[in-house]
Structure formats: structure tokens, C-alpha cells
Design a protein around this nucleic acid. Structure first.
Length: 425
RNA sequence: GCGGGCGUCGCCAAGUGGUUAAGGCAGCGGCUUGUGGCGCCGCUAUUCGGGGGUUCGAAUCCCCUCGCUCGCCCCA
């Protein structure tokens, strides 16, 4: 194949799927509006240091998945691999927190250099929520509820909410060193993968898929034991809040978010229908991040939802397909005067709110009608030299029984609009 | 980065060493020069992702390469 192709992992969204994407986006917007969450848009490109400091040097995302390059000014730049760091940076940079807590959402492409597979691309899209300046457990519950309701409204079934707590940053640091000490003491019995993670991300050892390691881990110190009383209470409040809203969840003590900034509540919404990449939405609390990036000490919680995975679920389900752009009216014309009159006519109908396709091919009438039929339009407007001369147009119903009708050009839009809302035949 | 599967027309797909590479869908043209949907007829791959090699001869065998895909890792 000598012709040019898109880069690996960079996917084109063709017209047959953009309708569904728009539907998801519109639904998300509406849910954010109802929850009084405002949109924020940040650049796709940031200084590399933002992600290194925000996400954590030791994470896979920063360590091996970033699209990083030097710009012409020799500055190290990175295409954003996730949204939270950028949002926090923007909020700090513009002093938004001095105006009070912030309820923000964002959406758009993210970039991670990984091997593509089902539900994973190198350029992928997330919609995310960030509640900054909210410490109470109720904000955790609210954040989760917004995600849950959005997914339910979209009609995604078979979802499971998994919940865990990572404790306060202090708890986590303390537990981390306990765990590392314990793992070091059992080095010989660990599998190579887990061994490597001691240095990089020890909490992830808990999630090892090696059976022997899992058996061994039964004797390891648990995060739950390392939690302070306060952290325990906080987690209990989150659980109670979810129960009060009737949102089902299952506790998963091995749910450890990969990014460094998480603390306390961590959650994932997963689907069994997604293959290996089962997480549709993931998030949690990140109380330390704002300060770590140079802002005021600010509690926060957020989540990100994977658009590709969501769309995958929606297109698997037996749901009516979201129609692509189908015209209401297809304009067929012929002859010099007719063709000249067709465009103003189409334009006038568009101004009235109709979806109008104009056949500008100059093809034979039969051809034009064939195309009118395939376009899916309900009506065809026919204008030839004779009609153009009299200032009239022929309206033909392509789907129903309505007889062909000759009417003044000026009446076309109103007539079609009225017919569209009326019964089909 | 590591494993498995696959790569024949825009899409689906037959063909596994031997003259011109089936077929279906879509597309285009015609039957039908002011009226579509059905039907009928015709056209659309000198070429089998690309490059080498074996052979009298390859889409079919071998090597390399590129791409797609599923999984591992990790994550949305």
C-alpha cells in the first residue's frame, strides 16, 4: 500500500459513527449542565514537566507511554496523556480557586504511545469531571453519581461499580513502606513481574495475576489495616452515600489506580462486554495534586470516561442506530433557469430550518431521483425551466401517499415543515 | 516492549503451484433524453499489503518487511 495511511493507533471516525459520538457528547453535556458543571478547555500540548510531576515519574504513563518531543525552542513538550493535570494547571495558573470551589468538565483527545488493541488507541477520547475544592465525602458520592447516571441514561447496561479506598496520602505513604519492607523480605518467593514492581509501583503487586504470588500475599500487610480512623470513617460515609442513592457497588481492595495522585476514594466502572480493557470510567480523589503542582492545598475528586469504550458498548447493544445526516428535502433541477433557481430555493429552505440536499450534478432526471431516493429524504423538490419561469416548484413525496403538488417557491419551506410534523401518509 | 491470529477490488469473499484471479454488496453506465424504489444488461483487481528468493511456472512454498487484529503489561 503506497498511499498514505493514518498513524498506527490513530483512528478516523467515519460518518457512520459520528452520529453516535455526537449523541454521547450531547448527553454528557446535558448531564453536566444539570449538575451545574462548567466546561474547561485546555491545550493538547503541555510542558512535559507537568505530567512528570503530576502523574508521577514512576508510572507507566509517564515512563513509557508519552508522546514527547522537543519543539523548535528546544523545550520538551508532551501531548496530554490524560486530562486532570492540565485542568489543575489551568486552574492554578488563572487563580480560579480564589473564586471558590470549581466544578469542571472537559472532553477531547488524549495520547498514549501503547500497542493498540480492543478499546485502546494511541489517540483516544475522554470526557472527564473534576470537582476542585470539595473535601466532603458527599462530593465523592456526587461525582460517582454523575458518571453513573450519565451511563444509565445512555442506556449502557451490565455495568459494575468497583470501589476502594487508598487512605490519606499519609496512610498511603506509611502503608507503602510497610508493604515494600514485607515484599523485600519475601523477594525469593515473588515472580519477576512483581519483583520489578517493588521499585516502580509496589501497590500494584497486590493485583498480580500470578497465583503463587496471590497465595503469598495473603500474609502481606493490608491497606485496610494501615488506614487511620479518619480514613475509615470517610470511606464509610462514601459507601453510605452510594447506598442512599441506590447505586450498587462492590468493594475491591485490589483496585489501585495507576496514577500517583490518587488518595482515599478510588473507583472504576467496568463492563464485562469490553474484552481485556474493561474499564469505561475510572477516577478517584486526588487531594494532594493541586498543591503538588504549585497551587493552594485543595481537596479534589474526579473521573475520566473512555469515549471509545463507551461507543463500543453502545454499538454492541441492540439499540436503534443514530441516524446520520439525512436530508428532509432533496432538490432536483434541470435546465439553465431551473438549475439557477435551485440553489436560492435550497438556501431559502435551509434558512427555514430544513435539512436540504441540492443535486448539483447536472445529471439526468432519472439519476437525480435515484439519488434523492438513496439520500433518505422524505421529499423531493423539482424545479425545471418551466417552473422557474413561473416561480413555482413541484413537491414530491418520496415516502408517503401525498400527491405531487405544484406550489409557489415561497411556500415550499412552510409546506414541507408542516408535512414533516404531520402524519406520514 | 513481549506473545498469538490475519492481510485477494470501497466492503464481504472463493481460490492452497499450471492458460485470461470466481461470486455477492456497493459504485458507474444503459434499458428509461421531466420523475426514484423492482427487474434486466454491461463496466469496475494485468493483480493478490510491500520487497527479495525457490520454480519452466506462485495469490498459493521460503525469507524479510509493513500493516491490521487479539492478548500480556498498563490504563479510559
Amino acid at each position: 500500500m503506497s498511499s498514505l495511511q493514518s498513524l498506527r493507533g490513530m483512528v478516523d471516525l467515519l460518518p457512520e459513527v459520528t452520529g453516535l459520538w455526537q449523541h454521547v457528547e450531547a448527553t454528557a453535556r446535558e448531564h453536566f449542565r444539570r449538575a451545574a458543571v462548567a466546561e474547561i478547555r485546555t491545550p493538547l500540548l503541555e510542558v512535559t514537566e507537568l505530567f512528570a510531576r503530576g502523574i508521577g515519574e514512576a508510572t507507566d504513563v509517564v515512563g513509557k507511554e508519552m508522546y514527547t518531543f522537543l519543539d523548535r525552542g528546544e523545550r520538551s513538550c508532551t501531548l496530554r496523556p490524560e486530562g486532570t493535570a492540565s485542568v489543575v494547571r489551568a486552574v492554578i495558573q488563572h487563580g480560579l480557586l480564589s473564586q471558590g470551589p470549581q466544578r469542571l468538565w472537559y472532553g477531547g483527545p488524549m495520547f498514549r504511545y501503547e500497542r493498540p488493541q480492543a478499546g485502546r488507541q494511541r489517540q483516544f477520547h475522554q470526557i472527564g469531571l473534576e470537582l476542585l475544592g470539595f473535601a466532603d465525602a458527599r462530593s465523592d458520592v456526587e461525582a460517582i453519581a454523575i458518571a453513573w447516571d450519565l451511563l444509565a441514561d445512555l442506556g449502557v447496561g451490565g455495568l459494575a461499580l468497583e470501589l476502594n479506598t487508598l487512605g490519606s496520602p499519609d496512610d498511603r505513604v506509611r502503608y507503602r513502606s510497610e508493604l515494600v519492607a514485607w515484599l523485600e523480605a519475601h523477594r525469593e518467593q515473588l515472580d519477576p513481574d512483581s519483583l520489578a514492581r517493588i521499585a516502580t509501583n509496589p501497590l500494584r503487586v497486590l493485583d498480580s495475576k500470578v497465583p503463587e504470588t496471590q497465595t503469598l500475599l495473603a500474609g502481606a500487610p493490608t491497606l485496610a489495616d494501615a488506614l487511620s480512623g479518619e480514613s475509615h470513617e470517610r470511606f464509610a460515609a462514601v459507601r453510605l452515600g452510594l447506598e442512599a442513592l441506590g447505586i450498587p457497588f462492590q468493594l475491591n481492595p485490589r483496585l489501585v489506580r495507576g496514577l500517583d495522585y490518587y488518595s482515599h476514594t478510588a473507583f472504576e466502572i467496568t463492563s464485562s462486554q469490553l474484552g481485556a480493557q474493561a474499564t469505561v470510567c475510572g477516577g478517584g480523589r486526588y487531594d494532594g495534586l493541586v498543591q503538588q503542582l504549585g497551587g493552594p492545598d485543595t481537596p479534589a475528586i474526579g473521573w475520566a470516561l473512555g469515549m471509545e469504550r463507551l461507543v463500543l458498548l453502545l454499538s454492541q447493544a441492540d439499540r436503534p442506530s443514530v441516524a446520520a445526516a439525512t436530508p428532509d428535502l432533496y432538490v432536483v433541477s434541470r435546465g439553465e433557469a431551473g438549475e439557477a433557481a435551485a440553489l436560492p430555493l435550497a438556501r431559502q429552505c435551509r434558512a427555514a430550518g430544513l435539512a436540504v440536499e441540492l443535486d448539483a450534478s447536472g445529471a439526468a432526471f432519472g439519476k437525480q431521483f435515484k439519488r434523492a431516493d438513496r439520500s433518505g429524504a422524505r421529499f423531493a423538490a423539482v424545479i425545471g425551466d418551466a417552473e422557474a419561469g413561473e416561480g413555482v416548484v413541484v413537491l414530491k413525496d418520496l415516502r408517503g401517499e401525498r400527491p405531487e403538488q405544484r406550489l409557489a417557491c415561497a411556500e415550499l419551506a412552510a409546506t414541507v415543515l408542516q408535512a414533516l410534523v404531520g402524519p406520514l401518509s
